Amino acid sequence: MLKKKFYLISRLVSGLGNSLYGLVFIWWLQTQTESSFIVGIVNAIFSTTAALSIFYGPIIDSHSYKKTSIVAMIWQVGLTFTLTATITFFAHNYLWAILIAGTLSLCDEFFDPADRAILKGTLTKENEMTSMIAQINIVDQVVQIGGIALSGALLAFLTSGQIIFICACLSLLGLILLLVALDQVSSQDHEQVKKVSHTVTLANYWQQVISGYQYVRANSFLQRYFWSSLLFSFASPALILLLPRIAQKSGRPALYSTFYLFLMAGFILGALLAGKMNADTRIMAFSWILSVVPLILMLFFMTNMIAFVFLLFIFGIVTSIHNVLGEAKKQNVTENQYLARVLTTMRTGTEIGGPIASIVAGALLDRVGQQELIIVCVILIILGGINLLLVKPAD
């Protein structure tokens, strides 16, 4: 059985390392190259590895979920230590650092689906799954806040290489705790590997990739959630670009971090509330639609930063509720042997709009303005919520 306390502590420790790494590496790259274009390319690389998740599912499903999650963590630890050495001793050759960082971004794309599949195999009750997903979301948001606060403090008296070394040590500690947490979890994932004894080959690989999407299409909830997530994937990056723009326009740069802190605080409270709810599609759809209310109100409070921050907090609460319920529902309605392929297919839907939306949103902000961008996001989110209301009750 899964040792939940060790599992959550492992996620907290390794998540803090990942949060620190993401912020500090971008900072190092910006100061090393003095090129926003190169930083943009690296961000696009990270987005692309996530958007291509659908192609990783067959590989994950053909192996033990436990072994896949552990191997992905081992690679993450090794690559982070390698990145530390590269930044410390070969800082002038930043292309090697980018290559390592791009490879490193793949580790999460293999770890997360396998990790969620382990939860599906060890948590048998629906409400137990929702509660665990809520706890994971709380931990993830806490480490994001911790990473933001800690990175600024550490950069004041440590080099980027030294901080990334700390990240590597945190990843190593997270790996050790994960091994303890999964010690009593069967490496056969409840006989799943024996039942699905296929091997990924070039001959059947594409068929398995397509089978994940076919499974999603055959289930009313998964199909609707995929398209709603796709719409949201265009809205989310646009809203992220909006925050620094508003902070800059107000002439108070400190607002940028304040925006994020209140948004994440909303995510944490929303996850706490969602942990007490059932993964009901109607609740999910209505919370999805209700999340546009604070966005619409923002149109009238663009210069009132106290009200704007409060509305961000409310948006975080409602968005977190439908995210947690959606994550739990996806796992509850999916058969074990298809889980990784379904989760990676859904992740592709969640991430595919990122690179395009970032470019389009940037152009919109430069040409039309903040209010128009918010209106576009509101339309996309409402359409996604209405789409979820059309899920057939049987699913």
Rank of each mutant, 00 (worst) to 15 (best):
Leu365Lys: 04
Gly316Cys: 08
Tyr65Gly: 03
Gln192Phe: 14
Ser236Ala: 14
Ile289Pro: 08
Val360Leu: 05
Leu29Val: 13
Asn127Glu: 12
Gly326Asn: 09
Gln214Phe: 12
Thr130Trp: 01
Gly354Ala: 03
Ala117Thr: 04
Phe111Asn: 07
Leu2Thr: 07
Asn304Leu: 04
Ala181Arg: 02
Ser197Gln: 14
Ala363Gly: 11
Phe313Ala: 06
Gln162Pro: 13
Thr88Ile: 15
Leu16Phe: 13
Val200Arg: 00
Phe259Glu: 02
Phe55Ile: 04
Ile321Tyr: 03
Lys4Met: 08
Trp96Cys: 09
Met284Cys: 09
Leu155Arg: 07
Leu390Phe: 15
Trp96Leu: 14
Thr80Ala: 06
Leu95Met: 14
Ile70Pro: 06
Phe90Ser: 14
Arg252Asp: 12
Leu383Met: 11
Leu297Pro: 09
Val324Ser: 00
Ala340Gln: 01
Phe315His: 15
Tyr7Gly: 05
Ser160Cys: 10
His190Val: 15
Leu106Cys: 10
Tyr213Gln: 05
Gly385Cys: 03
Ile268Arg: 04
Leu182His: 04
Glu335His: 14
Leu273Phe: 15
Phe313Tyr: 08
Ser186Glu: 05
Asp395Gln: 09
Ile138Phe: 09
Gln32Gly: 10
Leu177Arg: 01
Gly78Gln: 00
Ile87Gln: 05
Gly152Thr: 09
Ser19Arg: 02
Glu109Ala: 09
Leu182Gly: 07
Ser197Gly: 15
Ile163Pro: 02
Leu202Thr: 14
Lys195Thr: 15
Ile176Met: 11
His322Asn: 15
Leu231Arg: 01
